[in-house]
Structures are given as structure tokens and as C-alpha cells.
Computed example of a mutant assay.
Amino acid sequence: MTKKQIIFCDFDGTITVNDNIVAIMKHFQPPGWDQLVEQVLAKTISIREGVGRMFALLPTSRKQEVVDFAIGNVRIRPGFQQLLDYCRHNGIEFYVTSGGIDFFVYPVLSQFPIPKDHIYCNGSDFSDNHIRILWPHACDEHCHNDCGMCKTAIIRRYSPEQYDRIMIGDSVTDFEGAKLVETVFARSILVDLCKDLGLNYYAFDDFHDIVKQLEELKVQ
């Protein structure tokens, strides 16, 4: 039986050129945000705790400013539409698995033909004094990393017996998922992790590189 290819693609720093959460924090500069980023990267606090605490520093009175900046600041990495076209023409299922937040992930991706139920990200609540992040895709019983948006829980729904699972990512939120899938397309610090663990990976700069590599893998 030929396995069906399925792609799990990160959003911040992967589909987008920049990391939107860090960009928001750098722009609004709430006191203490930079220490939280350092703690997440050093893994002394979980991603869920770090991101939750960062956004809790921002008052909801600035909601429109935050939303406008987040959406207006985004630059899409070249070749993304071409990758979506390639997936459609080749019957590859495409999912966005994002540690980002709904108020910028959905508007940015609305320009692309991705069904909403193929986009996984965190939620947000602006009803109180400070922004509260919601976690609708928490870790399953196999993951104890307190991911917030658990990529491994989503990947595990697709059996390796039936699916050839491909992950595209760049950072700490992609580490655990990269260990599970059959193929990784990596950039930034994810390249180092893949090297260290001997994972099956290909480095990329933009999505044109990925389309080219998928074509090459097809004929092997």
C-alpha cells in the first residue's frame, strides 16, 4: 500500500519570515517579556507557561493596536502558495500546526486556500483586563512538555503505517514533532537539533526549496 503524504507546517518563523510573538513583544515592550523568552528557549519554563505569561503582560485596552501590528507585521516566506499548489496537485494533505495565536494566524492565512479545520493554533480571550491565551489543543497522555499547542498529539493521530509524515519548522516548538515524523524540513535552530539527533532532515531557506526536494524524493 502506498502511504499518503501529510505535511505539518509551523507558522511563526516558517510560513512567516519573522516570529510574530517575539515581534509583538519587541514592539510593545511589556516589562519582563525578554526574560520569559529566554526561559522558554532554555526550557526552564514550558512554552505554554511562557507564552501565557508574555501575553498576560499586555492590557486588553490595547487589543486593536496588538492585532493591527501582528497582522501588519507579517511577511510570508517566498514559495508558500507554490507549496500549497504542489500539495493540491499531488494529493498531499496540508496542516498548519502553529504555536501562534488565533487573532493573527487566521487573518493572515485567510488569503490562502487552507480549510479552517486544517489550521491548529492557540486561542485568545480579550474579555478581562489583560490578554489571556487559550489552549484548545493541549498535550495528550503521551506528551508531558506542556506545549500549549501540542504538535505531537496532532501528529500521533496519523499512523506511520498509513501516512508518510513530513514536518516543516524552525524552532523549539517543533523539536518534539521532528522526532516523530519520517521527514523534516528544517531551518534555524531546528537544523541543529536534527543534526544532533541524526534525524532525516533537509535544510531549507524558502518553500521553493521544499517543492524542489519533494519532487526529487518522488523519483527516488
Rank of each mutant, 00 (worst) to 15 (best):
T2Q: 13
K3S: 11
K3M: 12
K3Y: 10
I7Q: 02
C9L: 08
C9F: 05
D12M: 06
I21F: 03
V22T: 15
A23N: 10
M25I: 07
H27T: 11
H27P: 00
W33M: 04
Q39K: 10
A42E: 14
K43F: 04
R48W: 05
E49K: 13
L58G: 02
L58D: 06
S61Y: 05
K63H: 09
Q64C: 00
Q64M: 11
N73R: 07
F80E: 06
Q81F: 10
L84Y: 10
L84G: 12
L84F: 15
L84T: 14
R88M: 13
G91V: 11
V96F: 04
V96Q: 01
G99T: 06
V105I: 12
V108G: 02
L109E: 05
P113Y: 09
P115H: 12
C121P: 08
N129R: 15
N129H: 15
H130M: 12
I131G: 12
I133T: 03
I133E: 01
W135N: 08
C139S: 05
D140N: 14
E141F: 10
H142C: 11
C143G: 06
D146S: 05
C147I: 01
K151E: 01
T152F: 07
T152H: 05
R157H: 13
Y158L: 04
E161A: 14
E161P: 02
Q162L: 08
Q162Y: 08
I166M: 09
D174F: 01
G177D: 07
K179R: 14
V184H: 01
F185N: 04
S188Y: 03
S188K: 10
D192T: 07
K195A: 00
D196T: 08
L199I: 03
Y201L: 03
Y201N: 08
Y201K: 08
F204Y: 15
D205V: 12
F207I: 12
K212G: 11
E215F: 03
K218C: 10
K218A: 15
K218D: 14
Q220L: 14
